[in-house]
Simulated scan of single mutants.
Amino acid sequence: MLITRADLASYRGVEAHEAGARRRGRGSERGIMNAHMRGTPGSTRATWPTAYLVTIAALTGCGLMIDTMALYVSIFATDSCGSTNPAPVCTPVGMLSVWALPWVGLGVAAAVSAGLGVWAWRRGRTPWVLLPVGVVLYVASLAGAWTIMTW
Rank of each mutant, 00 (worst) to 15 (best):
residue 3 I to D: 03
residue 4 T to N: 09
residue 7 D to Q: 15
residue 10 S to A: 14
residue 12 R to D: 11
residue 15 E to M: 10
residue 15 E to T: 10
residue 17 H to A: 10
residue 18 E to R: 12
residue 19 A to V: 07
residue 19 A to H: 05
residue 22 R to D: 08
residue 22 R to C: 05
residue 24 R to N: 12
residue 25 G to F: 13
residue 26 R to V: 11
residue 29 E to V: 13
residue 33 M to L: 14
residue 34 N to Q: 14
residue 35 A to M: 15
residue 37 M to P: 02
residue 38 R to T: 15
residue 40 T to G: 12
residue 41 P to V: 12
residue 41 P to S: 08
residue 42 G to Y: 01
residue 43 S to G: 08
residue 43 S to F: 12
residue 48 W to C: 13
residue 50 T to V: 04
residue 51 A to G: 15
residue 54 V to N: 11
residue 57 A to V: 13
residue 60 T to V: 07
residue 63 G to K: 01
residue 64 L to H: 03
residue 64 L to W: 15
residue 64 L to A: 13
residue 66 I to K: 01
residue 66 I to F: 14
residue 68 T to W: 09
residue 70 A to P: 01
residue 71 L to V: 02
residue 72 Y to M: 13
residue 73 V to C: 04
residue 77 A to L: 13
residue 79 D to V: 11
residue 79 D to Q: 14
residue 81 C to S: 09
residue 82 G to W: 07
residue 82 G to P: 01
residue 87 A to M: 07
residue 88 P to N: 12
residue 92 P to C: 07
residue 94 G to R: 01
residue 101 L to S: 14
residue 105 G to P: 09
residue 107 G to L: 15
residue 111 A to G: 07
residue 117 G to K: 00
residue 117 G to Q: 02
residue 120 A to S: 09
residue 121 W to P: 00
residue 128 W to M: 08
residue 134 G to R: 03
residue 139 V to L: 11
residue 140 A to T: 15
residue 144 G to P: 08
residue 145 A to V: 05
residue 147 T to V: 05
residue 148 I to E: 01
residue 149 M to W: 10
